[in-house]
Amino acid sequence: MTHNTPLSPRPLQQLPEVHRRVLSTARLRSHGISTAELNERCRPGGPWQLLLPNVVLLHPGPPTDEERLHGALLYASRESAPGVPVQPSAQDPHRPVYTEAVITGLAALALYGFSSAPPLESLDRVDVLVPRQRRLRSTGYVRVLRTSALPTPCAVTGLPVAPVPRALADAVAELTDPGVVRRLLTEAVRGRHCEPAAVVRELTEAQLLTCPHVVDAVDLLLAEGRARAEEHLYRMVREYGLPDPVWNVDLRLPGGPHLGGLDAYWPEQAVAVELDTRAPRQGPREDDDAVWSQYARKREHLERLGITVVHITPKKLRDSLEQQAAVVRTALMASGDRDPAAYVVVLPR
């Protein structure tokens, strides 16, 4: 038997619990349920009910949150044969795998545990991403969102869920309450779900940075991200025994031009740390390139003056604090092997 050989269906009672309660009509037929029997069981007052087109709930009561999510994925997923979800080849070979269907929006954020997202039971709609070429309509409680590039899903409670930045963008696209948008974006950073830059990239891609309430929330998000990065920077100096720098300073040449702001500076060693908190914003790609060119020119100018500049991203501070401390320590130790730096004026920023 090859991996493409159809699997024989096993009895319904042997399926995983949720898949004994929500099944496609084609899957039921593969288990020997005839169309006539299916129609009889789904009649008003019958033991089953049609949850969505071609998706059956195998009990008469209201669906649970889990059943609604699996039903939405059953409805939206690509099937390998008429009505039969693609089957995996390991662990449980009879468990459906939902292909070309990913939960996104507020339902995804609720699955990630966002306290600022409505609980699943209060959502009257589940958003599902599918490839743009799919011919599939929104129906019932399922809203179909088409995308040219389906994101690689994360497995949350066994379900394919869009990464947090994409789920946020899809949720924000439908929200008009500035407070809700602000709380969702802020929680994404405070809860360490993702970096601000990743969120801004998705919002830019979705063309949402033309909305004033979204722009305001993004400004707060970036400020939140910078504050957290600064906390990590302070912690790095404290926990890894680095000498105390002067914090948040501006450098100037005596009687000359402004050289730029720095997050930490060691005057004796002429070593600086700059947090790279750039994030793509509204506008063409050339705008972001211009911002990076400005960063590069500033760094080159300082290094021509004999000042070593260490650029650190918030992600590196979060994920590899010890490694970043080693980079800074190496730069400090190497200062004795360099020519003396130009004299600069250090001012509070």
Rank of each mutant, 00 (worst) to 15 (best):
L38H: 13
N39S: 13
E40Y: 15
E40D: 13
G45Q: 12
G46K: 07
G46Q: 04
P47K: 14
P47L: 11
W48R: 06
Q49A: 08
L50D: 06
L51C: 12
N54R: 15
V56F: 10
V56D: 04
H59E: 08
G61L: 11
P63N: 10
E67V: 01
R68K: 15
R68E: 05
R68P: 03
H70R: 15
H70T: 10
H70M: 04
A72P: 08
L73H: 11
L74R: 05
Y75P: 01
Y75M: 03
Y75H: 04
A76W: 00
A76E: 07
S77E: 06
E79T: 15
A81Y: 13
P82G: 09
G83D: 10
P85V: 10
A90C: 07
A90E: 14
Q91V: 14
Q91I: 12
D92G: 05
R95K: 15
V97Q: 14
V97S: 13
E100T: 01
A101W: 03
A101G: 12
T104F: 00
G105Y: 00
L106G: 05
A107W: 00
A108H: 03
L109G: 05
F114D: 07
S116T: 11
A117I: 03
P118W: 04
P119Q: 08
L120P: 08
L123D: 02
L123N: 07
L123W: 09
V126G: 01
D127I: 01
L129V: 01
P131Y: 10
P131M: 09
R132E: 12
Q133F: 10
R137A: 15
R137L: 13
G140P: 04
R143G: 01
V144C: 02
V144F: 12
L145W: 00
T147P: 00
A149M: 06
A149E: 14
A149L: 13
L150E: 08
P151G: 09
P151A: 07
V164F: 08
R166A: 09
A167W: 02
L168P: 02
D170I: 00
V172N: 00
V172R: 08
